[in-house]
């Protein structure tokens, strides 16, 4: 086919593209991931009977607030990873801000804890379980975000995969945080972050395999 013909065909097919369609699809993927994670977490794990009481406490909201913040930052990173040539500066700043915030909270938390209680504050009762639960909760979001991102145009696949993994981890962790019984900032800073970063690592490995278009 002559290039001129191709141009004519493409120009003929130039129906307007609504701005933000890609972003909307990415948002939809996150919602699907949220629902999927909720089904997993509340379907598999036992129901929490102290739910209504605990819901009114500040520590309960600290966890999903942190993970949601993280997810928002990762969303920006995924969005720029799917746009060739886009800069990821804002997303990176928001991500660092989230990490700094939780690190500060954790430091205050540990400083206010008596020294013999510090290990308990850090390890809680579910230190080993938490990151694994987050990775599992992140599976639906991981799939949905990867599909959405592939529909965009990622050109650096490992980096795009990392961003997608972090986003999936943030979404999964936000749902798991609702169920989780831990309440110390130190625990969240270490084990939640570890779970989300593990998701990011998995995403970075998957990226070059599944994101090619």
């Amino acid at each position: 086919m002559q290039t001129g013909e191709l141009i004519a065909i493409l120009a003929g097919a130039a129906e307007p593209v609504p701005p933000g369609r890609a972003r909307r699809r990415l948002l939809l993927a996150c919602l699907a991931g949220l629902v999927g994670a909720a089904l997993l977490v509340f379907g598999i794990l036992p129901f929490r009977h102290d739910f209504p009481r605990i819901m009114l406490t500040a520590p309960f909201w600290m966890k999903p607030a942190y993970t949601a913040w993280f997810a928002v930052a990762a969303f920006m990173l995924v969005d720029s990873a799917g746009r060739p040539g886009a800069k990821a500066t804002t997303g990176r700043m928001v991500l660092i801000a989230a990490l700094v915030a939780i690190a500060c909270l954790a430091a205050i938390n540990l400083a206010l804890t008596s020294s013999d209680q510090r290990v308990t504050a850090l390890m809680g009762r579910s230190a080993g379980f938490c990151p694994i639960a987050i990775v599992i909760s992140a599976i639906p979001a991981m799939i949905a975000v990867m599909v959405a991102l592939r529909g965009m145009a990622p050109t650096r696949l490992a980096r795009a995969g990392l961003a997608a993994g972090l986003l999936a981890g943030g979404v999964g962790a936000t749902v798991y945080a609702v169920w989780c019984r831990e309440s110390t900032a130190a625990f969240v800073a270490v084990w939640y972050t570890l779970g989300i970063v593990a998701c990011g690592g998995i995403g970075a490995l998957l990226g070059p395999l599944v994101l090619r278009w």
């Binding site: 493409l10 097919a13 130039a14 593209v17 701005p19 369609r21 890609a22 799917g82 746009r83 060739p84 886009a86 965009m152 145009a153």
Partner: peptide
């Protein structure tokens, strides 16, 4: 053409 929606104006 196909990926034009990923172009940020």
């Amino acid at each position: 053409h196909l990926k034009r929606e990923t172009y940020d104006p």
